[in-house]
C-alpha cells in the first residue's frame, strides 16, 4: 500500500493535495461564515456581554 512512499519521488502530488485540501477548508468555512444571518452574527458576537461584568474601580477613577 505504501510502497510508493519509498520508491517514488512524488513530492509534487503532496504539494498539490495539501493545497487542494487547505483550499477546500477555506472555501467551505468561508461559505458557511458568509451565509450566517446578520441577526445570528449579532447574537453570537454579543454573548460575552450577556453576563455583566463590574467595572474595575481604577478604570472608573481614571476615566
Amino acid at each position: 500500500m505504501f510502497r510508493r512512499l519509498i520508491l517514488d519521488n512524488s513530492a509534487a502530488i503532496f504539494t498539490f493535495v495539501a493545497f487542494v485540501t487547505a483550499a477546500s477548508i477555506y472555501v467551505a468555512c468561508t461559505w458557511r461564515a458568509l451565509r450566517m444571518k446578520r441577526a445570528q452574527v449579532e447574537r453570537f458576537e454579543n454573548l460575552p456581554f450577556e453576563t455583566a461584568t463590574p467595572p474595575a474601580r481604577h478604570e472608573i477613577t481614571s476615566a
Binding site: 477548508i25 467551505a28 468555512c29 468561508t30 450566517m36 458576537e45 460575552p48 456581554f49
Partner: peptide, 25 residues
C-alpha cells in the same frame, strides 16, 4: 479583548473561518 475594549469582536464571521481553518491545518 471584547470585554476590555467594551465592544464586540470585529468580525464574528472571520472568527468562524479562523477557527476551522486553524484547527484543520
Amino acid at each position: 479583548i471584547p470585554k476590555a475594549a467594551e465592544r464586540p469582536v470585529y468580525s464574528y464571521r472571520l472568527s468562524v473561518i479562523h477557527f476551522w481553518s486553524l484547527v484543520f491545518l
